[in-house]
């Protein structure tokens, strides 16, 4: 188990637990992030900036503080995002 801020780019992870109060939890819920959901890290901004995740076809930016409160589980598979990310390979 690890937290979302440690997940690398293009990695898929599953939300196991959301630490922190009910407020932050319900806020993440309204954006479609729930326990058990799969998400993919699309970008990580430099200088401890936010993590950009794709979840259910939506992109959400999560600051490192928030990301460190999301416990995730990884299966280690690099899966293709919903087709939008094929060009990503070029950047790496």
């Amino acid at each position: 188990m690890m937290t979302l801020d440690a997940v690398g780019i293009h990695r898929e992870a599953r939300v196991i637990m959301i630490d922190g109060g009910q407020k932050i939890r319900s806020y993440l819920n309204t954006l479609g992030i729930h326990i058990g959901d799969w998400l993919t890290v699309v970008q990580r901004a430099p200088f401890r900036g936010p993590v950009l995740v794709e979840i259910h076809g939506t992109r959400v930016a999560l600051g490192r503080g928030v990301a460190s409160k999301i416990q995730v589980d990884m299966d280690g598979v690099v899966r293709q995002l919903s087709g939008t990310m094929e060009a990503v390979g070029a950047g790496k």
């Binding site: 922190g20 806020y27 936010p50 950009l52 992109r59 930016a61 600051g63 503080g65 928030v66």
Partner: peptide
């Protein structure tokens, strides 16, 4: 402050 949580349309 809870930090950044923002949808990127």
């Amino acid at each position: 402050s809870p930090g950044l949580v923002l949808e990127i349309p």
